[in-house]
């Protein structure tokens, strides 16, 4: 029997073979010197170099520096944006007063502020944390506001008729009800934090994985560059994976509900 699951697994297999084929093509072209191997060394060379780099461990220190920056900025942004978003989502007056300012500031490309922030905070970690923080705030803030505003009045009324105080309302109703939408914002910001981590290290950095990659390119240490990019991709993959794991636990009820209603 050929079930749909088996069919899918089979076609995914073709996809992986296709991917392997592409990498093999690169390897062959590089071996045949049909591409400039100064720019694109053999895949096998890159991979063995990556292994050496990881076992030597110096690169891990750079990664740790970068992660400390992006994680701390992300957490501060989440805390700040969720609290502000709840206030703005719940009190219509606050939202109406602040909304035009948000609309004005939001399309501002945060990277343009990097030189400004360098002037004020220097080239150290404070500048990078602040930049990442600024960029991560937006998705979480906007989603929190949406989530809170989208809560049905009947739910709030029900909790109140059952005797919930304002604090209980926040804790037992507003926060859990808005959580699925907040999580969407948190997920977007995971990617944002990594992007701004790399950019801030490239523009105003002396260490960290972003600086490592750009510096390797400038010094034409192409193996370092490719290895660094692969490591960065690994971090991105890991972050996505961990986030999905956490959010599946946090809002598993919502996933079940949407799966059911979609049928």
């Amino acid at each position: 029997m050929r079930g749909p699951g088996r069919l899918q697994a089979e076609s995914r297999l073709w996809g992986y073979l296709f991917l392997l084929g592409l990498l093999a093509l690169w390897e062959v072209l590089a071996r045949a010197e049909m591409v400039n191997t100064l720019l694109f060394p053999r895949v096998s060379l890159i991979l063995t170099y990556l292994g050496k780099l990881l076992t030597a461990g110096d690169i891990l220190a750079q990664v740790a520096i970068s992660l400390a920056r992006s994680l701390s900025a992300y957490l501060i942004a989440a805390l700040f944006a969720i609290s502000l978003g709840i206030v703005m989502g719940y009190y219509r007056v606050v939202y109406e007063v602040v909304e035009p300012f948000m609309e004005m500031l939001r399309p501002m490309p945060i990277v343009a502020l990097i030189p400004v922030i360098i002037l004020f905070l220097g080239l150290g970690w404070q500048m990078k944390v602040f930049i990442i923080f600024l960029a991560c705030v937006w998705p979480i803030l906007l989603n929190t506001i949406d989530g809170v505003r989208g809560i049905d009045a009947v739910l709030v009324h029900t909790a109140r008729t059952l005797g919930a105080s304002p604090m209980q309302l926040l804790r037992y109703v507003i926060l859990p009800a808005a959580l699925p939408v907040i999580v969407t914002g948190l997920r977007i910001s995971v990617a944002t934090s990594l992007i701004l981590m790399v950019i801030s290290e490239m523009i105003g950095g002396m260490n960290g994985i972003g600086f490592f990659i750009l510096n390797a390119q400038r010094k034409m240490r192409v193996l370092d560059m490719f290895a660094g990019i692969i490591i960065l991709g690994g971090i991105g993959y890991l972050f996505n994976f961990l986030f999905r794991l956490a959010s599946n636990r946090l809002i598993h009820w919502h996933l079940g509900m949407t799966r059911l209603t979609r049928r």
Binding site: Q8, S11, R12, W14, G15, Y16, F18, L19, L22, L39, A191, L194, I195, M197, V198, I199, M202, G210, I213, L214, A216, Q217, V222, M225, G228, I229, L232, G233, G236, Y237, F239, N240
Partner: peptide
Amino acid sequence: FHLFEPPIELLRPLPTPAMIPIAILI
């Protein structure tokens, strides 16, 4: 879609600015 899914999955999590050095090389 199935053919391109694995390469997409491989590249997608990479923060896009990491590609800048490669772009400079090319």
